[in-house]
Amino acid sequence: MSRLAVEISEAGYGPVTVLRDVELEVPEGGRLVILGANGAGKTSILRTISGLCRVSGSIRWGDAELVGAPPYRVAAAGIAHVPQGRGTFGDLTVRENLLVGGATRQRRTALADADRWLERFPRLGERASRAASGLSGGEQQLLAIARALMSAPRLLLLDEPSLGLAPKITVELFATLDELCAETGTAMLLVEQNAELALGIAEQAVILESGRITIRGPAAELRDNDDVRRAYLGV
């Protein structure tokens, strides 16, 4: 019965308000993508859900209210967040990075799971005892996602996973992401610049402009919407 229902009336950092009247929902196992220009407040939505922003309103997660909960409690409640850019622990080894992701779970399960991920992604497996800072951008992003999934979350928050990656690697990454979430039935809330790819793996989509949602609907529909195509798909 995990379902995210966000009703933010205002959110921001300190005296600065970034979001106003944002409402969105992610059903069990569902996938929602948030599109929008730089500075529209996409990242802030994810940060607000995770408890990193000042907020007024309500964020329901199943029966629980997340507003006022510190980030580590939100994570423990089954919401994993892969932050933008540096989501890894640079001076920890690759394996340790994964184990940190499993910090909320039993040690034995976490160890077994970490081995599973290292086997599944040989590129990570080969570098299991090296410092994560030595990985390439794509590998780091993969590691950050694997780390997030180590907590066996019911919802994955992803903040621009394609940032700084070569197009080919991005395509691979999204295919992997699609596969992983489908396997585990993990819901996904994705913030992305690459609208084409994002709309491809999402079910629902919203478009955020200056802190407000202006368009919402099924991903397939938005893909065919002329305004959206012009603004975000570059055609």
Partner: peptide
């Protein structure tokens, strides 16, 4: 972990 809204808007 049901917390009430603490920061009510003025």
């Amino acid at each position: 972990m049901s917390t009430d809204v603490t920061a009510a808007p003025k």
